[in-house]
Design a protein around this nucleic acid. Structure first.
Lengths: 243, 243
DNA sequence: TGTACATCAGTGAACGCGCGTTCACTGATGTAC
DNA sequence: TGTACATCAGTGAACGCGCGTTCACTGATGTAC
């Protein structure tokens, strides 16, 4: 989609470079102070430019925010994708656990970026449509693993809809949209797993795990429990029997 | 703990009333604009007072925020407690589902309050210790139901620790702290259920459920699925067989 | 290759805004005798 | 019950700050002939 930039002229080259520098500096301020503290003036100050100069590159603060949001989603998506790519394609349990760990790892490495996209909405800011694509990268990775596992017959599929028949329709519709071939109850479990992952990461980052001594242990156990809930194979060589 | 106020003098009565009015107005602004837009000056303006007058009641903006945070936790806790109290004490599945729905209902009725306490941390604000009590009300309700269900032999307890033996220690420690008698693997499932609940509510409120046509259906199905995961009895009279 | 013009990056001042907090002060309420 | 003093609520001006955005402008770079 994005045309490969050619940099015909020195001006274009300079423009691209300065755009990058602005984004980098904004990213630095986002990372250290959070989205609320990010200001055009501070970025310009740090870059040694007049604040008005930034308007040659971004028409408003919101556009800069959008760029950062897309960067964040892409960073997370890329990390998850490459984590997944590093696994044996047919070891679905390992792929799931690895990608979950990648999500948490990225969130812990980039807490303010994580808060920007998964925390409270920025007041007054409305995410434009073009954030949807990058936002769905991580979802696609997770869904892809479950789709593959389902195709290999490795997902729990009870055919039961504990909340009633209404779910059958909605679950089927969602399956057709995003996870073709998955039965509606497996779709529900996938959504549970998905929201659990981000719920746990958010609780850890936002300070709601009071009393939990070692979040690493909790995370690994939670991921393993959810993996079992989904029907994914358990890790090899791990204590699976009675303790 | 809190002493019952006596209002010996008119001054004390007036003080209590104005404190309430400030909190109410701050709550209104929080509800309509969100925490970031809440300012002492705006509250004072709306109340027809000088902004400096608020300092007779709250020593700083952060103290006002703390009061609002405590109110939010208490509002959620109370709603969950009374939802639980309205159920038959021995119908653990129904209690669980009812309280989960109460959490979501409160969050949807008070989205900015929810975001204040479960969204991104307010930049520069550090929650003081006295928020911990109110924050744990909702947790106590959820844990209480699972403890009761466990005591009645109605929780899944495999005795397995899919993430390895390390969890056995941490899970046992947590059980001793908050859920006496629960085996470590059930503790893990409880934590999964807890974080899933808030993860799903956050995703719904923060706009991450793109493509989900009917969040009500998803929520009910998710709660039911998680209930089954925990081992709680399914709802009566619901489609539990093959569709 | 050189010139005339158009395009564009960047400047610096200014606008208008709102914020949290402090301070000396006034006037009302409460208290002790 | 009445008076003298202490306590406290509330005022209004001010401090010092930072923000997003606009605008007329300068000077450098690019383009067409």
């Amino acid at each position: 989609m994005e045309p490969v930039p050619t940099f015909a002229t020195a001006r274009e080259r300079a423009r691209a470079q300065i755009t990058t520098e602005i984004l980098e500096e904004a990213g630095r301020q986002l990372a250290s102070e959070g989205a609320a503290a990010l200001s055009l003036r501070a970025v310009a100050r740090q870059l040694g430019m007049a604040s008005s100069a930034l308007y040659r590159y971004f028409p408003s603060r919101d556009e800069l925010l959008t760029a950062l949001i897309i960067e964040a989603y892409d960073g997370l998506g890329e990390r998850a994708e490459s984590a997944d790519a590093g696994c044996r394609a047919d070891d679905f349990g390992e792929r799931w656990r690895t990608v979950c760990r990648a999500v948490r790892g990225w969130a812990r490495d980039n807490p303010h970026q994580y808060a920007l996209v998964y925390g409270s909405p920025v007041p007054g800011y409305i995410a434009p449509e073009r954030t949807i694509g990058p936002a769905s990268r991580i979802t696609r990775v997770l869904v892809g693993i479950l789709r593959d596992a389902g195709a290999a017959g490795l997902l729990v599929t009870t055919g039961r809809h504990p909340s009633g028949a209404a779910w059958e329709h909605e679950g089927t519709r969602l399956a057709n949209e995003a996870m073709p071939g998955m039965p509606p109850d497996a779709v529900a479990r996938a959504l549970v797993a998905w929201t659990q992952l981000f719920g746990l990461v958010s609780f850890e980052l936002f300070g709601h795990l009071v009393g939990v001594a070692d979040p690493d242990l909790l995370f690994d156990e939670a991921v393993a429990q959810v993996g079992a809930f989904l029907g994914l194979p358990a890790p090899h060589g791990t204590d699976q029997r009675e303790a």
